Amino acid sequence: MESFIVSTGIVALAEIGDKTQLLSLVLAARFRKPWPIVFGILVATLANHGLAGALGSWVTTLLGPDVLRWVLGASFIAMALWMLIPDKLDPSEGDAAPRFGVFLTTVVVFFLAEMGDKTQIATVMLAAQYNAWATVVAGTTLGMMLANAPVVWLGDAITRRVPLRLVHIVSAVIFMVLGCVALLGWA
Rank of each mutant, 00 (worst) to 15 (best):
I10M: 15
V167Q: 07
A172T: 09
L164Y: 11
V170S: 13
F103M: 11
D18K: 06
I16K: 05
E93A: 02
G143V: 00
A134V: 15
S92F: 10
C180K: 13
G155Q: 04
W70A: 10
M176E: 09
G50N: 05
K19P: 05
A12E: 03
D87P: 07
V38H: 02
G64Q: 08
P98I: 00
M145N: 09
E15N: 14
A182P: 11
G56V: 03
V6F: 08
V170H: 07
I16R: 05
V151Y: 02
G94L: 00
T45G: 07
A122F: 03
A147W: 01
E114S: 15
M83D: 11
L166S: 14
L51R: 01
G94P: 01
A138C: 12
L164Q: 13
E114R: 07
V107Y: 00
P91W: 03
T123E: 02
I158E: 03
E114G: 13
N48V: 12
W70S: 09
W58H: 12
F4N: 07
D156I: 08
L126C: 05
A132H: 11
T135N: 13
V109I: 08
A187V: 15
V167W: 03
N48K: 12
S24N: 02
W186F: 12
A134S: 11
I10W: 06
S24G: 10
F31R: 01
A132Y: 03
S171P: 10
L13M: 15
K118Q: 11
P150G: 03
A12M: 14
V107S: 02
I37L: 08
M1F: 15
G116C: 08
P150F: 00
P36G: 11
S7W: 00
L42H: 10
S75L: 13
N48I: 07
G73R: 06
A28I: 02
V170N: 07
R161G: 09
I37T: 06
I169D: 02
M1G: 15
L62C: 11
A14Y: 04
T140D: 00
G116V: 07
M83V: 10
L154K: 13
L55K: 08
L27A: 06
A14F: 05
S92W: 12
A78S: 14
A127D: 00
T45E: 01
R165Q: 14
M1I: 15
T140Y: 00
V6L: 15
E114T: 15
L72Q: 05
T60I: 11
